[in-house]
Design a protein around this nucleic acid. Structure first.
Lengths: 207, 207
DNA sequence: GTAAGGTATCTTACAACGTAAGGGAAGACA
DNA sequence: TGTCTTCCCTTACGTTGTAAGATACCTTAC
């Protein structure tokens, strides 16, 4: 498992083949099948490991703070293992750490005063934001600020400005400003969602 | 292209191989390479086609309504082509329809009175919700209500209730209620986000 | 001390994949 | 009539996951 994660981290998910994994462990590919039933099992365990890396929310702290911390932690973990979302997306049966994590989030919301239906809404919404954001972040054709700059100018040069006025405006006046980093957008959405959930909870309690 | 989309729709993304695609068109696999440079190009075009299916927001209608409609349209399109998110997630260079769509959303926000930075925030947030939600929806191990019921009872039976109290509570009191459908959660989050954006815009205009 | 059995590894092989290389037939235009 | 372009073909290669079965070692039983 550690070897599989390290390999995917270092050389990308497409480099995670049974032969390369075995090679890194000093054995032949087929030897791995004595320890795992197939490659799917490895991917399943990798996803469960990822969930284990997420900071667990607690029922002691205020729900908003602890869920905010867990969302940021999840974002950071997913970004530092770029293969993760892709693999999560193709898994269908959750492992023990995954279940434990889900339970902790649900418990946190319920202890925070959310009704059962609102808990379901909140959980779906928070996780949509995490996964969707990271997915977009990974799809971006740049990672560092230098790459943004280079790419943006290349795009601006060949994009007909009259056809894409808003696009070029955004690029010039926002993306190309020093200090821009897409990852900063995560907290804006997260806080907007948390505030909205708080409001929804309060208006629910009024009735 | 039409054949590729139909094949992926009908038999899944993993069935979309050059040989099967060619077979459906009555030719051999290698003949396809006269029309496209490689399989990546097909996938790129498929993604661009998907973006073309999304309802374009307009600058005439109120931003909130038109963006709401486009989000719901995007959700529906992505759900009815289950391969779409997987493929979107691995693409790096947007096609013409994709650019056109981005432009329309940005223009809509700008016309709606959003500043440039807030437009960027709003766009990232809205799309995170769409992609993240659909991604979760696709990852769910069930599609129909009957499957939910069957799976939920199977899980409840083997899940130690004392270890997962919130989980079992949610399942029993929410998921297993008649009328439950995960897709219904989409609108809740969408409206929460749209309301939050409106508020953010207003508080921005105050200053 | 030796036989038996389990555990971990090996070699070999296969079907399916994307696609490189190059050949052949049909129509267009000189 | 001859050449060019377009479209399709066959063949072949390297890579993938993994099925099948042989081989080596370590434990345990007698």
């Amino acid at each position: 498992m550690r070897a599989a994660i390290a390999l995917a981290d270092k050389e990308g998910l497409e480099a995670l083949t049974m032969r390369k994994l075995a090679q890194g462990l000093g054995v032949e590919a087929m030897s791995l099948y004595h320890h795992v039933s197939n490659k799917e099992a490895i991917l399943n365990e990798m996803v469960d490991w990822i969930f284990g890396e997420f900071r667990l929310p607690t029922t002691e702290e205020p729900w908003k703070e602890t869920l905010r911390a867990r969302a940021i932690s999840a974002h950071d973990v997913l970004v530092s293992h770029p293969w993760a979302i892709h693999v999560i997306e193709t898994r269908r049966d959750p492992g023990p750490l995954t279940l434990q994590h889900h339970e902790a989030v649900l418990a946190c919301l319920r202890h925070g005063g959310f009704s059962v239906p609102l808990t379901a809404h909140a959980y779906a919404l928070l996780d949509s934001h995490i996964y969707g954001f990271v997915m977009q972040e990974m799809t971006l054709p740049f990672r560092t600020y230098e790459e943004v700059e280079e790419l943006a100018e290349h795009i601006l040069a060949q994009m007909p400005e009259e056809l894409f006025p808003s696009f070029t405006e955004l690029t010039r006046e926002y993306i190309l400003k020093p200090g821009y980093a897409y990852a900063n957008e995560f907290a804006f959405g997260l806080d907007l969602i948390l505030d909205g959930l708080e409001r929804a909870k309060e208006s629910e309690q009024m009735t």
